[in-house]
Nucleic acid binder design. Structure first.
Length: 991
RNA sequence: GCCCAGGUGGCGGAAUUGGUAGACGCGCUGGAUUCAAAAUCCAGUACUGCAAGGUGUGCGGGUUCGAUUCCCGCCCUGGGUACCA
């Protein structure tokens, strides 16, 4: 019987599904292991070969862990809220729920074909009410908490209210936007509304007017990580800064823990660094520069009003020659003198109109205005000018900087541009061409700091600043709070209603708050989010249910929140839900989360470094603070699979006309093969005359005319052709002609061997480039086991690589060879129960060792190689011993589960039991060799090798090698200076 | 600019701690089998040279008996990020 993968794979897929082979037990004596894939967004395009790459790797590992005796949790689900389904709904009127469900069905079908060992009984979908009920609940928990910097954790708002009522807020060290201070008496005197307004400034989920990234084309706000280079990540639309009342998450509170937590994680440095940079911790201190209140020569006045700046270089304070404020700084209007007012106001207005992108695009244009007022240098008493400039950001630090041109390039450029003073406070450093930004060397001309090193000066400066009460050491973070509202339909509704304009949480008992039906998915005419179209979207506080909007009386029935939650809400905690997916009482039971704990291995793309991965860590830490879960990092080890790029095929189309026919209507065209294109092609200059003889003669011949009649020749750009009609770069001419009406009579200039060779390009897979490779056709043609092994064989998991099916035959052949090991020439099972040969045992144990090591270091590509080597060796040995093949089958089963199951049962073992069979143990005794072939090198260059007994002593080996004729030949009569013998490795002779 | 990852045959890629560079697969060349093809099997395949030999892991140095591996300085590619004071 031949290796009939179609039959075999269908059979085992069905068996696994019917027997729930991969169902994970919640109560097991076995140790647990949690392997998770980043769940996909079910897009309309379906899976392409890039998707399964990570899933195959995690599946292999999950199966390996089962063989090692672990109770493995390996679930899958869908991140099913999102923009594309909504855009599609706007265009077609189809309910996003419908298209989403269809897409999920297609994904499932594709996933099933690849033979994953997912426990589908635990599937989650972020868009199902049973799931988002708990996303809503977590939101209300965040609303109900504040962050206590003293205890470094989230605490309940009710406790904060008690503190306020007894001692006010001055002793509270919280992460807050509240700048007001009050004592208990004042607090107790506040009315309810005022109290709530203050509490909003402490809540971890809060409603506030803040500058947000507004994307007009998408009609919604975006989080910082959704904006790339000033345009939206999705669609590349421009983004503006807009002040809007929005829900936000106080992720800033967790900045420090998000940084320190990285140390204990087994993630790549690259991802950790990206997160560290994104959080952007910088240490320095704040310094107050008192305002100059007098005329020239007058003494400085009391420090009752001042400009506060933040600096990371307090050591350079004597180098300050001016201050720069952000144009939006609140004191600008007040401090602008009359003679400067017009220029300043124009400048402020101009910068407020700039979009984020404009501001970034014109980094090199230095601009600013002197506002006419001065501050006083707190140590020298000198007058320093006050400027505004849009290189200073209102939202970072204090919105003002002390400019030290000698130590900061931007300040240097600014000073240079406006002809301001550049003081040098560095010993023996030339700053005439550029600022000196190294934190090394000694400080000069700096009062009490003179002669100190930068480090010492830093410390001394902060001490002096603190002593004079001008400011204090401070840590700043670049991380901004995350906007949590989206003006979209297809997302989680907020469990919120508004009473007197203040948000109120709907009690958890009444969740889920189900997404209402709407007529249209577009914003309303008066600019409200799509939920503004919902006719039944009001909260009845008496009956505790959603009622028709006509009932809104602002007494007992109130309007509900019209925004929905962002995409990252549902994905920030989904890994917890898999542990207890059907629990209706809690988001996850304590018992189950204590058993499964955090994810042991997480596999997914690195593009989520500053989005999903940061938010999921934030929510995990929050849930940990409240005691719901027992760990504060979600993903212990993570591997980021590389992107699989598509390899597009290109044809080269050339246009021509006969002499005297200048009209472009009569242009004819011809396709030229790759080598000819390479002779004449010029991608920078696609439209020009061609003088190549081969082409001109060919065309003349085709048109029964003389070459002189053929005149202007133009080459167009390269055209993508469908990769399905190209084999090994050779174009299937017939298929090409049939692919489009316009190609029906196409003419070609071939290569010398009569074939048409296409060009190629490696780029992202996309429909428009005709280079999308779906797994389905490959599974159909070669089987899932071949696809699984081939995707792994392609190269290291983490690396990006072009997809190329050229090598897939090699892997498929391997599986056929493997199959043949078990059968005789006529295809009948032929297994020997005799004791295996020494060679076969050696091959087996070498393989056990290598496969284990490769799995432990996630080197799946070398794993496949090692199976190939083993099968090649066993084939040569004509080994068909049960003892050998059984162990080999177990090892192969994570990679190629279908064929392994089939042969396992053919060997007479119970169906399904291979999935929990013990992974074979390595016995080094089988690898012991009696002799070793030593490479003999001279000055490090290997010349020949010689077989020596493995237990030969260094001295004996040395003498033996020296006595060899070949050695004498290379010594050329000289005596060796030195001889190095590394037992079991090498012999090196130094001449 | 800054941070991170990477640079090895015609191609994808191997090479645990410094110890025979190019495993494994693809492709290519030749051969066997076949009426022929597919499939299968065998041999060869870094470059250069008729050969002995020489040269080779982005480039230039260094450490070492010995460097793809360690150190210093550059170049290139990919990713991230950017007036963050």
């Amino acid at each position: 019987m031949e290796y009939n993968f179609r039959e075999i794979e269908a059979k085992w897929r069905q068996f696994w599904a019917e027997n729930q082979t991969f169902k994970a037990e919640d109560n097991s004596e076995k140790p647990k292991y949690y392997v998770l894939d980043m769940f996909p967004y079910p897009s309309g395009a379906g899976l392409h070969v890039g998707h399964p790459l990570g899933y195959i790797a995690s599946d292999i590992f999950a199966r390996y862990k089962r063989l090692q005796g672990f109770n493995v949790l390996h679930p899958m689900g869908y991140d099913s809220f999102g923009l594309p389904a909504e855009q599609y709904a706007i265009q077609t009127g189809q309910h996003p729920d419908k298209t989403t469900k269809e897409n999920i069905a297609r994904y499932r079908e594709q996933l099933d074909k690849i033979g994953f060992s997912f426990d589908w009984s635990r599937e989650v979908r972020t868009s199902s009410p049973e799931y988002y009920k708990w996303t809503q609940w977590i939101f209300t928990q965040l609303f109900d908490c504040w962050y206590n910097n003293k205890t470094q954790q989230a605490e309940r708002i009710s406790e904060l209210e008690l503190i306020f009522a007894s001692v006010g807020n001055t002793v509270v060290d919280a992460t807050t936007d509240c700048e007001e201070t009050f004592n208990a008496e004042t607090w107790n005197g506040f009315d309810h509304e005022k109290k709530e307004a203050i509490l909003q400034q402490y809540r971890l989920a809060y409603l506030a007017d803040s500058w947000v990234n507004w994307c007009p084309a998408l009609g919604t706000v975006l989080a910082n990580d959704e904006v790339i280079n000033g345009v939206s990540e999705r669609g590349g639309h421009p983004v503006e800064q807009k002040k809007m009342r929005q829900w936000s998450m106080r992720i800033k509170a967790y900045a420090e823990r998000l940084i320190t937590g990285l140390d204990g994680l087994d993630w790549t440095d690259s991802i950790k660094d990206q997160q560290r940079n994104w959080i952007g911790k910088s240490q320095g201190c704040s310094v107050c520069f008192p305002l100059w209140r007098g005329t020239e020569g007058e003494e400085m006045l009391e420090i009752n009003e001042s400009i506060e700046v933040f600096t990371t270089r307090p050591d350079t304070i004597f180098g300050v020659s001016f201050l720069v404020l952000a144009p939006e700084h609140p004191l600008v209007a007040k401090l602008t003198t009359e003679d400067k007012r017009e220029a300043v106001e124009n400048y402020v207005k101009a910068s407020s109109l700039k979009t984020e992108r404009d501001r970034q695009a014109n980094v090199k244009n230095i601009s600013g205005e002197f506002i006419g007022s001065y501050a006083v240098h707190p140590f020298t008493g000198e007058k320093v000018q006050l400027w505004i400039g849009d290189y200073v950001l209102a939202s970072y630090g204090t919105g003002a900087v002390m400019a030290v041109p000698c130590g900061d390039q931007r300040d240097w450029d600014f000073a240079n541009h406006f002809g301001l003073e550049i003081k040098n406070i560095f010993e023996n450093i030339d700053i005439s061409e550029a600022a000196y930004t190294e934190k090394e060397g000694k400080i000069a001309d700096s009062g009490f700091l003179t002669g100190l090193t930068v480090k010492e000066a830093m410390k001394a400066a902060i001490e002096a600043i603190e002593a004079k009460e001008l400011g204090k050491g401070k840590t700043n973070y670049r991380l901004r709070d995350a906007v949590f509202s989206r003006q979209r339909y297809w997302g989680e509704p907020f469990p919120v209603y508004y009473k007197n304009g203040k948000p109120h949480m709907i009690d958890a008992r009444y969740m889920p708050i189900i997404l209402p039906e709407v007529e249209k998915y577009l914003p309303t005419e008066d600019g409200q989010p799509p939920l503004g179209n919902a006719p039944v979207w009001a909260w009845d506080t008496v009956d505790n249910q959603i009622v028709d909007n006509v009932n809104i009386d602002h007494e007992t029935v109130f309007p509900m929140e019209l925004n929905t939650m962002p995409g990252w809400a549902g994905s920030s905690w989904y890994f917890l839900r898999y542990m207890d997916p059907h629990n209706e009482q809690e988001f996850v039971s304590k018992e189950k989360v204590d058993y499964w704990k955090n994810v042991d291995l997480y596999i997914g793309g690195s593009e989520h470094a500053t989005g999903h991965l940061l938010y999921a860590r934030f929510w995990t830490k929050f849930l940990y603070d409240l005691g719901f879960i027992g760990f504060d990092e979600p993903f212990q080890k993570m591997i980021n699979q590389g992107m699989i790029l598509g390899r597009s095929s290109l044809v080269y189309k050339l246009h021509y006309s006969k002499l005297n026919t200048q009209s472009t209507d009569n242009l004819k065209s011809i396709f030229i093969s790759k080598s000819l294109f390479e002779k004449i092609g010029d991608s920078k200059n696609p439209l020009r005359q061609i003088t190549n003889e081969t082409i001109i003669n060919f065309i003349a011949d085709k048109n029964n005319t003389s070459p002189n009649e053929i005149n202007p020749l133009f080459i167009t750009n390269e055209l993508h052709v469908d990769i399905s009609i190209v084999d090994n770069d050779k174009l299937d001419i017939e298929a090409f002609k049939n692919s489009r009406e316009e190609y029906k009579n196409a003419e070609f200039i071939y290569e010398d061997d009569g074939t048409y060779i296409c060009g190629s390009e490696v780029e992202k897979m996309s429909k428009s480039k005709f280079n999308v490779q779906t797994p389905d056709e490959l599974v159909e043609k070669f089987g899932a086991d071949t696809l699984r092994m081939y995707e792994m064989f392609l190269g290291p998991l983490e690396q990006s690589k072009p997809w190329d099916t050229k090598g897939i035959n090699g892997v498929h052949n391997f599986l056929r060879k493997f199959w043949r090991l078990f059968h005789d020439q006529t295809g009948n099972l032929l297994i020997s129960d005799e004791a295996p040969s020494k060679d076969s045992l050696k091959t087996l144990h070498k393989t056990i060792q290598k496969i284990s090591i490769d799995l432990e270091r996630f080197s799946f590509n070398t794993g496949v190689s090692n199976f190939m080597i083993a099968v090649n060796e066993l084939g040569e040995q004509k080994c068909n011993n049960r003892a050998i093949l059984k162990d080999l089958l177990i090892m192969l089963s994570p990679y190629a589960p279908h064929i392994s199951e089939e042969l396992w049962v053919k060997l007479g073992y119970e169906a399904g039991s291979i999935n929990v069979a013990p992974f074979p143990t390595f016995n080094p005794d089988y690898l012991v060799e009696s002799a070793f072939s030593y490479p003999i090198s001279f000055n490090g260059k290997v010349r020949f090798s010689v077989e020596l007994p493995a237990d030969m002593s260094k001295e004996d080996a040395e003498a033996h090698v020296l006595g060899l004729e070949k050695t004498q030949h290379y010594l050329e009569g000289k005596a060796p200076k030195k001889m190095i013998v590394v037992p079991g490795r090498i012999v090196n002779i130094v001449l």
